[in-house]
C-alpha cells in the first residue's frame, strides 16, 4: 500500500465534564470522563469508524474533532499541526475543511430556507464566491448527490428522508472539506434507502477524496463503509485497527460481544450466543481497575484491583487491543 497521509490525529485526547452540585454556590463534586485518553489517526481519503454503545464517548470524540467541545487534555493534530496552538486564521481554515452530516435529516435542515440556499450557506460564509458561479456550483452539487438541479428552489419539506439526507451531504461537500463527520448517517432512513445513501457516500469519497469519521452502531454498516474501526467502551478505546482484521479476528471480549450481538444475515447463520451480562456501568461511577471487568467473561483479581497496566498494544500489524483484555476474548 502506498504511503497515505494522516489528516487528523488524536493523541491521548481527553474530555472530562465537571459534575456540580448546589444551586447558587456551585461546587464541583466529581467528573465524568466522557473520553479518557483516546488515540487514533484518520487517513486521507479513508473512513474511520467509531463504534460502541450509547455513552461510550464516540459522539463526544466527534464533537472534539468538530471543535464543538474543547478537549480537556491531549492533542488533536490537523495535517500535523496541534489544534491548541492554531492561529485565528488557521482555526478558520480548519473549520472550513471539516463538515458534518447528522442522523436526522428532518431536524438538520432549516425548513424556511430553500435547498439551494441551504447548500450554499457554508460556502458564502467562508469564501468570496463570484455571483455568477453560485448557481452553477449549487447545481453541480445537487447533481453530484443524485438530485435534479431545478430542485434548488424547493423547500426541505418537499423531499423524502433519503433525499433530505442527500441535501445534507451536498451542504457538507460545498466547501470541499478534507473531513466529514458522519453521525449515524443512515440509521434514521428506510431500509431500501440506506443502501442508496451508503453507496453515494462511498462514491463521493472516491470523487472528492474526502475522509470520513463515521459514527454508527450498526456493525454491518461499519464493515461496509470503513477502512479502520475503533471500538470504544466507557470513554476508552478498547480495540482498534483495520476493519477487516478487527472483524475477522476480534480479540477484545467487548468487540466479540458486539459482533455476536449484531443480528444474523440469514436464519441459518444463527450465532452461538456469546452474550454479555449486564449493562454499561454509569460513567459517573465507573468500576475500579479495568472498566470492562464487571462484564468480562474471564476477569482476574488484577483486573478488578486495577494493578494491571492499561493501554493498547499491537497484536498484529494494524490491529491494537487493550492490554488487559487481549486474552480474555
Amino acid at each position: 500500500m502506498a504511503a497515505v497521509n494522516t489528516i487528523i490525529e488524536l493523541e491521548e485526547t481527553q474530555k472530562y465534564f465537571p459534575v456540580t452540585s448546589g444551586a447558587i454556590l456551585k461546587k464541583v463534586t466529581g467528573q465524568v470522563k466522557a473520553v479518557d485518553g483516546v488515540s487514533f489517526k484518520i487517513n486521507e481519503g479513508e473512513t474511520y469508524s467509531l463504534v460502541g454503545e450509547s455513552g461510550c464517548g464516540k459522539s463526544t470524540t466527534a464533537k472534539m474533532v468538530l471543535q464543538v467541545e474543547k478537549p480537556t487534555g491531549g492533542v488533536i493534530r490537523f495535517n500535523g499541526n496541534d489544534m491548541n496552538s492554531f492561529t485565528r486564521e488557521q482555526r478558520r481554515e480548519y473549520r472550513a475543511s471539516i463538515q458534518a452530516v447528522f442522523q436526522d435529516p428532518w431536524s438538520s435542515l432549516n425548513p424556511r430556507m430553500k435547498v439551494g440556499n441551504i447548500i450554499m450557506e457554508p460556502l458564502l460564509a467562508n469564501q468570496e464566491v463570484p455571483k455568477g458561479e453560485i448557481k452553477e456550483r449549487t447545481e453541480q452539487l445537487l447533481r453530484d448527490v443524485g438530485l435534479h438541479s431545478f430542485q434548488a428552489d424547493y423547500y426541505p419539506h418537499e423531499f423524502s428522508g433519503g433525499q433530505r439526507q442527500r441535501i445534507a451531504i451536498a451542504r457538507a461537500l460545498s466547501l470541499q472539506p478534507k473531513v466529514i463527520v458522519l453521525d449515524e448517517p443512515v440509521s434514521a432512513l428506510d431500509v431500501s434507502i440506506r443502501a442508496q445513501i451508503m453507496n453515494l457516500l462511498k462514491q463521493l469519497q472516491d470523487q472528492y477524496g474526502v475522509s470520513y469519521l463515521l459514527i454508527a452502531h450498526q456493525l454491518a454498516t461499519v464493515r461496509y463503509m470503513s477502512h479502520h474501526v475503533g471500538v470504544m467502551y466507557l470513554g476508552k478505546m478498547v480495540e482498534e485497527g483495520l476493519t477487516k482484521k478487527v472483524f475477522d479476528n476480534p480479540r477484545h471480549p467487548y468487540t466479540r460481544a458486539l459482533i455476536e450481538a449484531s443480528l444474523p444475515a440469514h436464519p441459518d447463520s444463527q450465532r452461538e450466543g456469546f452474550m454479555l451480562e449486564g449493562e454499561v456501568p454509569s460513567p459517573l461511577n465507573p468500576p475500579q481497575g479495568c472498566s470492562f471487568h464487571p462484564r468480562c467473561p474471564k476477569p482476574t483479581k488484577e483486573c478488578a484491583e486495577g494493578s494491571m497496566e492499561m493501554g493498547l498494544i499491537e497484536v498484529e500489524e494494524g490491529h491494537r487491543v487493550d492490554r488487559c483484555c487481549v486474552n480474555c476474548g
Binding site: 433525499q163 443502501a195 453507496n199 444475515a265
Partner: peptide
C-alpha cells in the same frame, strides 16, 4: 441491499427511487 457483518462487499445493491 442489506450489508452483512460477516463479509466484505464492494458495492451494495440499491433499490432506486422512493416508496
Amino acid at each position: 441491499s442489506v450489508p452483512n457483518v460477516e463479509e466484505d462487499v464492494e458495492m451494495l445493491y440499491a433499490i432506486e427511487g422512493q416508496p
